[in-house]
Simulated assay, not measured.
Amino acid sequence: MALVTTTEMFRKAYSGGYAIGAFNVNNMEIVQGITEAAGELKSPLILQVSAGARKYANHTYLMKLVEAALIENDIPIALHLDHGGDFEICKSCIDGGFSSVMIDGSSHSFEDNIALSKKVVEYAHAKGVVVEGELGQLAGVEDDVKISAEDAKYTHPDQVEEFVSRTGVDSLAIAIGTSHGAFKFKPGHNPMLRFDILDEIAKRLPNYPIVLHGSSSVSPEYVKIIQENGGRLADAIGIPEDMLRQAAKSAVCKINIDTDLRLAMTAGVREVLYQKPEVFDPREYLKIGRANIKTLVAHKIVNVLGSDGKA
């Protein structure tokens, strides 16, 4: 099966009251764990690559890993650029075989964001590639994206119609209280998402796919394993999964998950190396990390996204 765009995925997800998981990939074990889980559960899937992942793994290697996943798993898979910071990286990914890109102009003024996003859309659509835009800014750190809590901005519902109509973006990432990284909320503060903003945006953009970034739940079981095996992740707090499930039942058609994957992989590696210091074969610890990834993704597909059986 060849790569697909997210158009049909999102249409079905919107009407079906579920979301598609967009999982960040960096190496072979992460790709294997994600795609094996999705393949067994017959879930449509978005594999997404950040600029940092392309620097780390090389575009060609990542493309070949995804190509292998397409051969091994009979499910629809889209390959998406996560947080494309400028036209050039979006163009490179479009020309390099991606089926979807995100242009993140959220740090620019409203007018400059529109101009940049429209430029990417025009180039992408001519090549049969879909585009995700962003309004509002999430706090936290992910690769080169670093936004302080003070600088974070909720998406203004009164801007979304103009932004979508003038740019032509195929989906829209919004800021309603999610954030990047493992430390999304301060200890003692109850996690809260602005569902009122989401609902208002859904009214203004009927049947239009909305995206949530920074949506890892910072899985407590993996944080515990890391802590018990020499790690330091005290006070790591994520988005409650029941809130994400609620969002998936509404206009949210794509939920981004990265930090949870990192935690699952690290928990497996740490547990082996800490408890079995004689181990030096990378296969011994990476296969445990890969198994954790598969277990995590299967849980997300069934209990958070609701996308199992929807391929």
Results as ranks from 00 to 15, higher is better:
residue 174 I to C: 06
residue 14 Y to A: 13
residue 144 D to M: 05
residue 20 I to G: 06
residue 85 G to Q: 04
residue 240 P to A: 13
residue 182 A to P: 02
residue 128 G to K: 09
residue 197 I to P: 03
residue 234 A to Y: 12
residue 147 I to M: 10
residue 34 I to S: 03
residue 300 K to M: 06
residue 283 R to L: 12
residue 95 D to M: 01
residue 47 L to I: 04
residue 113 N to R: 12
residue 130 V to K: 14
residue 144 D to Q: 06
residue 135 L to S: 04
residue 251 A to Q: 11
residue 173 A to E: 06
residue 71 I to R: 15
residue 214 G to V: 05
residue 81 L to S: 11
residue 23 F to L: 02
residue 306 G to V: 08
residue 107 S to Q: 04
residue 6 T to I: 13
residue 80 H to W: 09
residue 20 I to W: 15
residue 306 G to Y: 01
residue 298 A to R: 14
residue 145 V to G: 02
residue 273 L to N: 00
residue 124 A to E: 10
residue 193 L to N: 10
residue 275 Q to L: 13
residue 13 A to C: 10
residue 287 K to Q: 12
residue 221 E to Y: 02
residue 113 N to E: 14
residue 216 S to M: 01
residue 8 E to N: 15
residue 211 V to N: 01
residue 154 Y to N: 08
residue 55 K to S: 10
residue 303 N to L: 11
residue 222 Y to V: 00
residue 296 L to G: 05
residue 122 E to T: 04
residue 232 R to K: 14
residue 216 S to F: 03
residue 48 Q to W: 04
residue 226 I to P: 00
residue 108 H to R: 15
residue 275 Q to D: 12
residue 9 M to S: 02
residue 120 V to D: 05
residue 265 M to I: 11
residue 274 Y to K: 11
residue 39 G to N: 13
residue 278 E to K: 14
residue 272 V to E: 07
residue 157 P to N: 11
residue 211 V to C: 00
residue 60 T to Q: 13
residue 228 E to R: 02
residue 140 G to K: 04
residue 150 E to N: 12
residue 174 I to Q: 13
residue 268 G to L: 00
residue 278 E to G: 15
residue 182 A to G: 06
residue 180 H to M: 06
residue 23 F to I: 01
residue 61 Y to Q: 01
residue 86 D to L: 07
residue 294 K to D: 02
residue 10 F to V: 08
residue 214 G to R: 05
residue 46 I to W: 03
residue 28 M to L: 15
residue 273 L to V: 13
residue 179 S to W: 01
residue 81 L to E: 11
residue 273 L to M: 10
residue 283 R to T: 09
residue 2 A to K: 14
residue 127 K to E: 15
residue 76 P to S: 07
residue 261 L to G: 13
residue 310 K to A: 10
residue 118 K to H: 11
residue 159 Q to I: 02
residue 54 R to G: 00
residue 44 P to Q: 13
residue 104 D to N: 07
residue 8 E to C: 01
residue 178 T to K: 05
residue 282 P to C: 03
residue 272 V to L: 10
residue 230 G to M: 06
residue 255 I to L: 03
residue 98 F to R: 10
residue 209 P to L: 12
residue 271 E to N: 10
residue 69 A to T: 08
residue 269 V to Q: 04
residue 201 I to G: 08
residue 52 G to A: 10
residue 24 N to Y: 09
residue 27 N to L: 03
residue 2 A to D: 14
residue 77 I to T: 11
residue 84 G to P: 06
residue 306 G to H: 03
residue 307 S to L: 07
residue 179 S to P: 12
residue 29 E to P: 08
residue 88 E to A: 08
residue 37 A to G: 12
residue 129 V to D: 02
residue 49 V to E: 04
residue 271 E to H: 00
residue 188 G to S: 06
residue 158 D to N: 14
residue 265 M to S: 09
residue 22 A to L: 09
residue 147 I to F: 09
residue 290 R to T: 13
residue 14 Y to N: 12
residue 178 T to L: 07
residue 151 D to I: 00
residue 86 D to W: 06
residue 113 N to S: 14
residue 115 A to Q: 12
residue 90 C to V: 00
residue 25 V to C: 03
residue 120 V to A: 06
residue 292 N to S: 08
residue 253 C to T: 15
residue 190 N to W: 07
residue 295 T to S: 14
residue 102 M to V: 00
residue 129 V to K: 09
residue 106 S to K: 00
residue 232 R to I: 04
residue 60 T to D: 08
residue 189 H to N: 14
residue 40 E to N: 13
residue 194 R to M: 11
residue 117 S to V: 13
